[in-house]
Computed example of a mutant assay.
Amino acid sequence: MRVEDGPHAVEIRGLRKRFDGQDVLQGLDWSIPRGRTIGLLGRNGAGKTTLLRCMLGLMPINGGTVEILGEPMDEPRGERLHRIGYVPQTFDLFPWMKVAAFLDFTSAFYRSWDAALCARLLEEWSIDTRKRISTLSQGQRQMLAIIRALAPGPDLILLDEPVASLDPKARRDFLATLMPLIQGTGRTVVFSTHITTDLERIDADIALLRDGAIAFTRPVQAVREQIQKAVLRADAGTAYVEPPQVPGVLAARVDSGAACYVVDAGDPETLTSLQALAKREQAQLSFTTLSLEDLFVEMA
């Protein structure tokens, strides 16, 4: 596998995408280190699919720049097509073709195609190559799309909610097979999802897409160890309408009259500011650990 010398597989600066006069991506900046697995987390409709398609040049952008593997991604072409694997949210191509014919047809476009890996995954995922694609279940079609993306041995793999159509057991079995194929190989992987439990099972960095921008990026382990919820509760009979401003917090809201903040427990300045606020307002300050799902609810 060819490995790029630069430290980042993807560099995005000021990316804007507008639909019907409304900004979906609002000056988004994002650098994706080479060789990492990134879980792109966001609510349904947050713009995850739009972001991935803009990254690949499959959708025109309204501003900003995208570089993939060290080159501007103004349109998908040439050498990079052999180095990028993409799995869309739904796979609806060539429904009339049989699986075997589709894979033979697809492999002809790539100078490097791992036929042994392809055969192994077809067997492990119980995909009958004699069937037409239209007769496969949605989950099997998605698995076929993943085989098509992995077999050329790409340097960058973009997976757009690849397991959303699978039940929980099938998702767990699928990830157990998939992740050893892509982690620790030097490949860069972007794994778009809104299912937090899937990301907690893999060693990934978490990137949260919110309000048209990447609002938060941390390794899963750092989320478990450092990210907490701070609750500032005033004396009985007093309720906050808006959370008092505290520098450095990751998110803030009011819940049942209490001011709630998402904070990095490793940031002493933010913690000192919260403690000073609690003392000044004679309020109770408490901290609780957040799971990845808690973080998603609080920040998304």
Rank of each mutant, 00 (worst) to 15 (best):
Y110K: 07
Q140W: 00
C54K: 05
E124C: 08
V24Y: 06
P162T: 00
V3W: 06
R111P: 02
G139M: 00
I147H: 04
V263K: 10
G266K: 11
R187V: 03
R2F: 09
I38T: 09
C54A: 15
S165P: 07
G266Y: 08
F105V: 01
I227K: 03
G14K: 13
L292F: 02
E75S: 10
I157C: 02
P268A: 11
S112K: 12
G212E: 07
A239N: 15
T272L: 13
H82Q: 15
Q22D: 14
T177H: 06
W113H: 03
E124A: 13
K279H: 12
D205E: 13
T217P: 01
A119Y: 05
M1C: 09
K169H: 11
T289D: 13
R218Y: 01
A300K: 02
F105S: 02
P95L: 10
T188M: 04
D205G: 09
T135Q: 12
N62I: 04
G6L: 10
G184K: 00
R83V: 04
E71V: 12
P152D: 03
D198S: 05
L178V: 06
H194P: 06
A300Q: 00
I84E: 01
V254P: 10
E242S: 14
F287C: 11
F191M: 01
C118W: 06
F102C: 09
P219A: 01
T177A: 10
P219E: 04
L166V: 04
T193H: 01
M59R: 09
Q282R: 15
Q284P: 08
D160I: 02
R53T: 13
D155G: 05
T272P: 04
A9W: 05
D114N: 14
L158M: 07
V249F: 08
D255V: 15
Q228W: 09
L117C: 10
L199H: 02
R187F: 03
L51D: 05
L290S: 01
E161R: 04
L15C: 06
E4W: 07
S192D: 06
E124I: 10
I127F: 08
L117N: 03
E71T: 11
R77M: 06
G212I: 08
L181T: 03
D104Q: 14
R77Q: 10
